[in-house]
Amino acid sequence: MAQSAETIHGSKSKSGAAWWVEPYLTVLALGLFGVYSLWLVFFQHTGQFQNYLSPFFSPTEDWGIKVLPALWVLWAPLLFRATCYYYRKEIYRGFFHDPMACGVPESRRKFYFGETRFPFIWTNLHRWFWYIALVVLVFLWIDAVKAFIFPVAGGGSTFGVGLGSLIMLVNVSLLTMYSLSCHAFRHLVGGGSQKFSCADGSPTTRYKLWNTVSRWNEKHGLFAWVSMFSVWFTDVYIRLLIYGVIHPVRFF
């Protein structure tokens, strides 16, 4: 680094770390997640262990389309996250150094078109990927419910709670909060309207919805990270079960 941390804006983050720590951590986390996803796509063919299903492989229905099982699912959440306003900030800072941190000079490229041209103009389609992500979310909720219904020897099934059931429930809850705190959703439910009061002065329904989503939206970045790690962790847990490295824990 040419400049010392002290002479650069954003030199000290809240934690007191140097300005370049955050962009490099972003690259590391997203990079590892990307590599892990690719490994799943090309080298893993199932995410099922008994009644647990990895979020990377849900839904399992292929509707006659023959593709790699993880790829069938993965493109949707991937495009959803890649066009997310929060991840865009992190990606532009971490991967494109546009800018790496506030006030840090950008010297590498002459041209900058922002989100006005291909490829980043596509980020304007974020709301469409949000709709698709919602469909995926419905499947994940069904999977989470199934994770509480265990097969019994000799046929039939019973309600039960295992470590995997809890992990899957937490994961789908975090994904739900990530989706419902989305900026496009905030706009959709009420942000786009100009008036928030009815003729009699009472708040409109759209106002109430917008207000609630706005509160969640303040934590959108947090939900983005924790839900990414929970998806990752859920798959790792189920994969370790599939490989027999660990044994399933059943509470009752």
């Binding site: 804006h9 954003g10 306003y85 865009r88 900030k89 532009y92 800072r93 546009d98 800018p99 506030c102 006030g103 900058y112 078109f113 922002g114 989100e115 006005t116 980043f120 103009i121």
Partner: peptide
């Protein structure tokens, strides 16, 4: 030119 903004948030920070 709102498309030029890539929402990297330095304006908000300062």
């Amino acid at each position: 030119g709102i498309g030029y903004c890539n929402i990297t948030k330095c304006c908000t920070v300062v």
